[in-house]
Computed example of a mutant assay.
Amino acid sequence: MTAYAESSLSSTAASAGPAAPGAGPTLRAPQAQDAAAIHQLIAECPPLDLNSVYVYLLLCEHFRRTCVVAERGGRVDGFISAYFLPEQPDVLFVWQVAVHERARGQRLAQAMLGHLKQRLASDRIRFLETTVSPDNQASRGLFKAMARRWQAPLQEQEFFQSTLFGRQAHDAEPLLRIGPFGAA
């Protein structure tokens, strides 16, 4: 599930070092010190499901290689949490994509996804998967744009029905799958 509305970030977003005023964001792996700021970011990005700070601490420690923080001016403007499926190590599952309101309209989500895919290139990712509720048009647009950019097919199938969320009012979460990448 993702939350943002994007539209124009330079493809040369920095990947290391502090950002100069007016420069693009720094895209990097998260650290434990980022967990509270990530928690706050998610809280400010409805309709994303807010998890405990502890969950974000675990993501920053155990899954830092497959997660991305976008930072500008010492503030966390974006975050992606992702992980490899344990029984399908060529599938990267994107759990949450968040872009703060102050950073929207800069294609930050696209830059973070591209950065993550490039950083994990040696893992030979064949597919990227995520779930997106049917009414989340911004997220659907993001993943359609990435499929076009990566010249890979995008498929959708049923995954988590709304009834699986118990008493919690939650939309269904269909699975979107991009790939296979690089037919080689």
Rank of each mutant, 00 (worst) to 15 (best):
M1F: 11
T2V: 14
E6Q: 13
S8C: 13
L9C: 12
S11I: 15
S11Y: 10
A14T: 05
A14G: 08
A19K: 09
G22P: 00
G22T: 00
P25A: 12
L27W: 01
A35T: 01
A35R: 01
A37S: 11
A43I: 09
E44N: 13
P46W: 08
D49P: 03
L50Q: 08
V53D: 08
L57Y: 07
L59A: 15
C60L: 00
F63C: 06
R64W: 05
A70M: 02
E71F: 05
R75G: 04
I80F: 10
I80H: 05
Q88W: 12
L92P: 00
V94I: 14
Q96A: 04
A98H: 03
A98R: 01
R104F: 06
R107P: 00
L108Y: 02
L108K: 00
A109E: 04
M112S: 04
L113T: 02
H115T: 04
H115L: 02
K117G: 08
K117V: 11
L120W: 05
R124S: 09
R124M: 06
E129C: 08
T130Y: 05
T130C: 08
T131P: 01
Q137S: 14
K144T: 13
R148D: 15
R149C: 10
L154P: 02
F159H: 09
F160H: 06
F160C: 08
S162N: 08
T163V: 14
Q168R: 15
Q168I: 15
H170V: 08
H170Y: 15
D171V: 09
E173A: 11
L176D: 03
L176Q: 08
G179D: 06
P180R: 10
G182N: 12
A183H: 14
